[in-house]
Design a protein around this nucleic acid. Structure first.
Ligand SMILES: [Mn+2]
Ligand SMILES: [Mn+2]
Ligand SMILES: [Zn+2]
Ligand SMILES: [Zn+2]
Lengths: 142, 142
DNA sequence: CGGGAAAGCGCAACTCAGTTGCATGAACCC
DNA sequence: GGGTTCATGCAACTGAGTTGCGCTTTCCCG
């Protein structure tokens, strides 16, 4: 149901453990939410998903930031100035996103890796990561 | 010097005129600033550039938005939640950007058009535009 | 198992880019 | 010039994300 999924909790915990850092309740719950999500989630959407026994707003921000630093999640800046987060999972690494201009939903384009994307940068510039967002209409809003 | 450049004012005015919409002082001054800029500018940076006889904050926001709607400029959402704007000029259309993680400066990668970029989207999704941002270290901050 | 140091959490107050509503002023069509 | 329409300016507001600090949890070691 919408309750806790044993397997995904264990999965989240294991990923956290593998960083060598502290495994805390907020980290487990947030990473689990991201792993189960179908797309990239805003801070607000995650708060709703966590529902009862919600975390403090600030803690959620800090956990999300931490997950990104540790490479367990990545962040995209939407056209609405709101960040969205999604888990980086073994098979699909950093990927492109689709943002629907009508409903605002952000879909992960898992097939479209941004690691392999070749972009020429001027001499002396060093590329460390690429953010690629396609904007348009999603299937629901067609 | 840093004052008004006749030629670029005329250039800005002509572009505005070609939209068939009203040509106003704020629109001319803002578009001129964007045309002369080396990279993508934030709202704040534009305010500084305009210097004396600055526009109202709100007017500047509205002018920038209007320029984007009319296709004379485009907007990118930086990693710092701040929008940056650059003119779309005849030769180089919508293009990719480079954002320096150290100094925050955003450089236009004019050679890297985002119009020609081919990205596969899921069935039923319609792509209407692509935003591509490379993050890393710029030449100054190397 | 217990400490205890180090790191993370929660709360309250804050910042600041961008928005909204409305009265005034400037384009521009005739 | 005169009137209509649209843009500007001001003030008040919104809301995502941040900061500082005291309290709690993790987890390492004995
Ligand atoms: Mn994603
Ligand atoms: Mn640009
Ligand atoms: Zn949609
Ligand atoms: Zn730099």
């Amino acid at each position: 149901m919408s309750g806790v999924n044993r397997k995904s909790v264990a999965d989240a915990e294991e990923r956290l453990r593998s960083t060598g850092e502290r495994v805390t309740v907020p980290r487990v719950r947030v990473l689990e939410a991201l792993l189960q999500a179908g797309g990239a989630l805003t801070h607000q959407e995650i708060e709703v998903l966590l529902g009862s026994a919600a975390l403090d707003r600030v803690t959620l921000y800090r956990v999300l930031d931490w997950l990104c630093v540790k490479g367990l999640a990545h962040r995209m800046s939407g056209g609405d100035r709101v960040w969205r987060f999604s888990a980086i999972d073994g098979q699909h690494g950093r990927h492109a996103h689709f943002e629907c201009r009508h409903c605002g939903k952000v879909t992960c384009l898992d097939k479209q890796s941004t690691d392999e994307l070749a972009v020429n940068v001027p001499r002396g510039f060093r590329s460390e990561g690429i953010e690629l967002t396609v904007r348009g209409r999603c299937a629901q809003c067609a």
